[in-house]
Simulated scan of single mutants.
Amino acid sequence: MASATLASSWTTTTHATEGGGSNYPVGVNTLLSGVQPPPGSHIYVYLQAYEATTLEGNNGSPTASVSEFSLHAQAAAFRLSHVWRDVTFLGATLESRTNIPFVNLDLHFDAHTPKGTVYKSGTATGLSDLTVGPLFLGWHLGNLHQILGLEFFLPTGSYDTSRLVNPGRHYYSMQPNYAVTWMPVPNVEFSARALYSINSVNHATDYHSGNEFIVDYNAGFRFTPMWQIGVSGYFYRQVTDDTQHGQSVNGNGNRGEVLAVGPSIAYGTRKFSVALKYQREMMARNRPEGNRIWLQMYMPFQ
């Protein structure tokens, strides 16, 4: 599955990466993530809803600097994919992708400052940051499928330092990624997609979000030729410090971490597929901890 940007930013220094978000929408590329579609053009539609009522600190407990935390986010994204006919490289078929995401964000909380408690709130709706994947290599070796690619996140979403939340993150990201799907028997699937996000500096704030390592995963059982149930989720870990004005942020680099798991159900044919996924976050550090729901659809249009 493709990436659809979900971004949120707020002006406090108690959460991983700037605003505690990421260009990459964790948990999206789970089912059949290593399977490249056949030659031709394809469209994927992703609808996401996320809700969090706690903001975890560096020790994995709710941060003392914020209370009454509430983040609600919805996203709709469209991935356009083209697998090139009669073109191969190193035995792989070639694919190009682009992702067009839109978000709706609602955030409010009480911030505890030396001068007292301050209520903060903000909303934002609009185009988020586009993703361009110029080249993906896909290998299909019996029951083992693999995809290797590189994506770029472009700061096309609206951004204003005076706003509490923004549709865009105002920096570039480069993400090499590798996905694999193994079907040891025809009705059992194990899939994973790993990526490493290298983030540039937000020049509006001189904030440099740390690099991120992310794994989306799925284990599924197909109980009829078209229906599958399974377990999917993601693991997120920030591997370098956040910095601002050249200094590590918050004394510990604000390194975020979270694990998510939940059930999924999918229906698919060669001409159409749809999946519904629920993912519960746990073990969060320096970021919100909440619940995520995905509704994903696919169809070819060649």
Rank of each mutant, 00 (worst) to 15 (best):
N29D: 09
E151K: 02
P38K: 03
G57F: 10
H140I: 02
G262D: 06
N199S: 15
L90N: 02
F190K: 00
K120G: 02
G126Q: 05
A76R: 11
V66C: 07
N99F: 11
Y46H: 15
G40C: 05
Y217F: 12
E289V: 12
M299E: 06
W182L: 15
S67L: 08
S41N: 12
L150Q: 06
T63M: 04
H203F: 08
W84R: 11
R193T: 02
E151A: 10
F190C: 01
H72E: 14
P225T: 08
W182P: 01
V188L: 14
V118E: 13
L259M: 14
T224M: 11
P176L: 12
F89D: 00
S197W: 00
V180I: 15
L71Q: 13
A2V: 06
A204P: 04
W139D: 08
D106M: 01
P37A: 13
R79Y: 04
N252A: 06
V132K: 00
Y119W: 11
R255C: 08
P38T: 13
L259Q: 04
L130I: 10
F221Y: 15
H112N: 12
L32M: 11
N187S: 13
Y171M: 00
H112A: 14
R292C: 07
T54W: 02
L127Y: 09
A260C: 07
S61G: 06
N58W: 03
S9E: 10
Y207A: 09
G220C: 10
L144W: 14
V35G: 03
L141E: 15
P62F: 05
Q36G: 12
Q302M: 12
V180P: 04
Q247H: 13
P62R: 04
Q302P: 14
R163S: 13
N199A: 08
G253E: 09
V83H: 05
V118I: 12
V87H: 11
S232I: 03
H203K: 14
F78L: 15
Q238M: 07
Y217G: 00
A2T: 06
F272N: 01
L130M: 09
A260Q: 07
A76V: 14
I198R: 10
H108I: 02
T123Y: 01
V165E: 06
G142E: 12
Y298M: 03
P37I: 09
V132Y: 15
A75D: 10
F69M: 07
T161Y: 04
Q146G: 07
A4C: 15
Y172R: 03
I293Y: 15
A49V: 02
G126P: 06
S173I: 02
W10D: 10
L135W: 06
G133M: 05
A64F: 07
Y278K: 06
Y236V: 10
G256W: 05
T93V: 02
W227L: 13
N29M: 11
D86C: 03
P300D: 10
R193E: 04
M174T: 11
H245C: 07
